[in-house]
Design a protein around this nucleic acid. Structure first.
Length: 372
DNA sequence: AAACGCCGCAACCGCCGAGGT
DNA sequence: AACCTCGGCGGTTGCGGCGTT
């Protein structure tokens, strides 16, 4: 069924509101209260449609709207909530007193999103971006067994990004496990996470090959002489698990022959460059590394009976403890001057993201039901 | 000083679900 | 059940301000 427009567009004013219109609208709402938006403009004497009045009121004229630059705490909250809720701006706004969904949406699109992108983080999935990886280097170093920790980290980043939209808990578990290699703490890895890696599910395996094959850089390798078929992948996971190290590809049951000059560009024989693309998504605590003890198989999955909500949120976003902000609340800035210091903003955000893999669950912010 | 391009944000648009008749 | 209104939501647009050349 078609729906009639909310108002007759003819003769009604559009575009920016004048101060006179604002006064009329505010005065009317102060006297009669908000609501009945359809009749409001007629009763108030405004040449606007009700929807326009409502938007003007809720997004701009409402007295409880907070103005000024978003504080760092607010940014943290937005990022955390977005990692859980996705683009549910109204739900996010409900957690930020004085901020409107429109304002948060704008701020996300114009500031946070861009900064995350610059940092190599996918703002949708909150995971490192696959397209920033030198995928040849990942596989090349993997095949040539150069710096397996780096190769594994890259592989984990690859997987985490590729499958982030429909996150498989086991996949995330694997990624988390693999990420611990970054710290070079293979002992911890093998002790704490063996079982996790043992549990690589069929789902993961079903995802792994398409993940690799879906990338053009890998497609060549698949087509030529590198064939990480399912059986090899299973064995690979088992070897990683039992040896706590990256196995040589030749140990796989279906020996892989490859020509290294075809697979490994000279430029990537050292993989640290690729690894360094992700400064913020590796555990930052090196003296006492915190390898996550992930909860069960649920992996913080939300109840499935909540529709239209992206339940699959990355470990890297919500399981952190936001550190105290070095940036004081800045409410003195004018509304149109919220981008006063991008470098400071980026420091804040990078600092925040550097904590994302600490896996310290905040006491107050992870009651998922509160977000629903 | 003028032209140009970029960016941020207010506002609009189309759609949806809830609720009333 | 069908139709309609209303409020709300997320995506998108376009304008004005600002910086750069």
């Amino acid at each position: 069924m078609g729906r009639a427009p909310c108002c007759d567009k003819n003769g009604l004013k559009k575009g920016p509101w004048t101060s006179e219109e604002d006064v009329i609208l505010v005065n009317y709402i102060q006297e009669h209260g908000p609501g009945n938006w359809r009749n409001l403009p007629k009763n108030a004497g405004l040449q606007r449609c009700g929807k326009s009045c409502r938007l003007r009121w809720t997004n701009y004229l409402r007295p409880d709207i907070k103005r000024g630059r978003f504080s760092f705490e607010e940014e943290e909250t937005i990022i955390q909530l977005h990692s859980i809720l996705g683009n549910k701006w109204s739900a996010i706004a409900a957690r930020l007193p004085g901020r409107t969904d429109n304002e948060i949406k704008n701020y996300w699109n114009t500031h946070i999103r861009k900064r995350l992108l610059r940092m190599g983080i996918d703002p949708v999935t909150h995971t490192p971006r696959l397209d920033l990886l030198d995928l040849s280097s990942i596989l090349g170093s993997y095949v040539s067994n150069i710096n397996p920790a780096a190769a594994l980290l890259n592989l984990s980043n690859l997987l985490g990004t590729q499958q982030a939209i429909n996150v498989n808990p086991e996949l995330l578990r694997l990624v988390t496990t693999l990420s611990s290699f970054k710290q070079g703490n293979t002992q911890l890895f093998s002790q704490n996470n063996q079982n996790q890696l043992c549990n690589v599910s069929q789902d993961l395996q079903n995802q792994l090959v398409p993940s690799l094959q879906s990338n053009p850089q890998f497609q060549n390798l698949f087509q030529d002489d590198f064939s990480p078929d399912m059986e090899n992948l299973k064995q690979l996971m088992q070897m990683i698990n039992t040896e706590g190290n990256l196995p040589n590809m030749s140990n796989l049951s279906s020996p892989v022959s490859y020509s290294q000059e075809n697979i490994v560009p000279n430029s990537i024989l050292g993989t640290e460059t690729a690894v360094s693309n992700f400064p913020s998504y590796v555990p930052s605590s090196t003296s006492n590394p915190t390898v996550p003890e992930l909860p069960g198989n649920s992996f913080f999955q939300l109840p499935l009976n909540n529709n239209n909500v992206n339940h699959d949120f990355g470990f890297d976003s919500v399981l952190s403890t936001p550190h105290s902000s070095p940036t004081p609340l800045n409410s003195s800035g004018t509304y149109n001057n919220i981008n006063s210091s991008s470098t400071e903003d980026e420091r804040d955000l990078e600092s925040y993201c550097s904590n994302l893999l600490k896996f310290e669950i905040p006491d107050s912010t992870l009651d998922i039901n509160d977000y629903m």
